[in-house]
Design a protein around this nucleic acid. Structure first.
Lengths: 145, 145
DNA sequence: ACACTAATTATAAAGATTATTATGTAATAA
DNA sequence: TTATTACATAATAATCTTTATAATTAGTGT
C-alpha cells in the first residue's frame, strides 16, 4: 500500500528536477513506511546498517528537500528534536507528555479560527497548527503501579 | 497597570519560597512590561546594560522558576528559540511567517477537540495548543513593493 | 549580625542543526 | 563516448540554544 505512495512521491520528486539517489530513496522509503514520526537522528540510525557511510547532513539535506517540495511536514516541539511526518493529508496530533509518542487524529479543519484570526489581527493567514497533549494509555497503565 | 501585576507576581514568588534578587526582579519586570514574547537571549541583551555581570544561565534559571510556578508560559516554535509569555489568561497566538512577530488573539477554548481526541485515542488529555500562521500587515505592505 | 541556604557567575558541555569544502556521481550536450 | 555541468554526498567544523557544574556571592530568618 505504501509502495504506491512511494512511487507517487518519486514521480513528484522527479518532476521537481530532484535526483533519486540511493540515500534519498532510502530516507523517503523509511519515512513513508514508518507510522511513528521519526526524528532526523532516528532515520539516520535506522539507515546506518544499509548505508554505513551516510552522513547525518545527508538526512537533513534530504528532509529539507522533501519539505520544500511538500512531501513531508516538519513537526517542532519544545525541548526535543524535530519530527517528520509524511502524512500530508489534513490531520492533527495527540502527544504523550510522558513518553513523547505522537498519534494522528482527525478532526474537521478549524477554518473558522483562521478567518477569525484574519479579521481580528489583519494578518494574511495561511495555515494553523494544533496539538493535543496528554498521557497515552500505555503510560496510564504504567503509572498506575 | 503592569505595576500591579508585578506586585502580585512577587507575592506569588515569595509565597512559593523564592527569593527576590535584583536579577530575578529585573527579568520578571521586563517580561511583564513587554508586549512581545521575548526569547531568553532578548531578555539577556535587554538587561545587559543594567546588569553587566549577569549570566545567560541566570535568565534561563529565572525563566524556569517562573514557569514552574505558573507565572509564564514557554512557547516553542520551529527553528528558533523559545519565547516566553507572561499572559497566563487563555489565548492563542498568530505568528508572522515573515518577521516572526507574535500577536495574541482570543477564541473560545477548543474543549470539544480535547474530548474528541480523548475518545478516539484513549489518551488522558490535559491541554492543547494552537497557533495560526500568516503574514502580518506590516510585512504585507513591505512585500507589496 | 550570623548562619544557613539559595542564587549567581563563569565556564564547560551537550545536543540539534547548519555551513563548508572536497569529492563523487548523475544528466546533458557536443 | 566523452566532456561538461550541476547536483549529492561525506566528513568535519561551526553555530546556536540550553543545561550542568563548581565556586563564589548574597538574601533571609533568627
Amino acid at each position: 500500500m505504501s509502495e504506491k505512495r512511494l512511487q507517487e512521491a518519486i514521480v513528484t520528486l522527479k518532476d521537481s528536477g530532484v535526483r533519486i539517489t540511493p540515500q534519498r530513496h532510502a530516507v523517503l522509503e523509511f519515512l513513508l513506511n514508518s507510522m511513528t514520526h521519526p526524528t532526523a537522528d532516528e532515520i539516520y540510525k535506522a539507515l546506518e546498517g544499509k548505508f554505513p557511510n551516510m552522513s547525518v547532513a545527508t538526512v537533513y539535506n534530504n528532509l529539507r528537500v522533501f519539505k520544500d517540495i511538500g512531501l513531508v511536514r516538519e513537526l517542532t516541539y519544545g525541548d526535543a528534536s524535530s519530527r517528520f511526518d509524511c502524512n500530508t493529508t489534513e490531520h492533527y496530533h495527540v502527544i504523550c507528555e510522558s513518553c513523547g509518542k505522537i498519534v494522528d487524529f482527525h478532526y474537521p479543519s478549524l477554518d473558522e479560527v483562521e478567518s477569525l484570526a484574519e479579521q481580528v489581527t489583519g494578518f494574511d493567514v495561511s495555515n494553523h497548527r494544533m496539538e493535543v497533549y496528554g498521557i497515552c494509555s500505555d503510560c496510564q497503565t504504567k503509572n498506575a503501579h
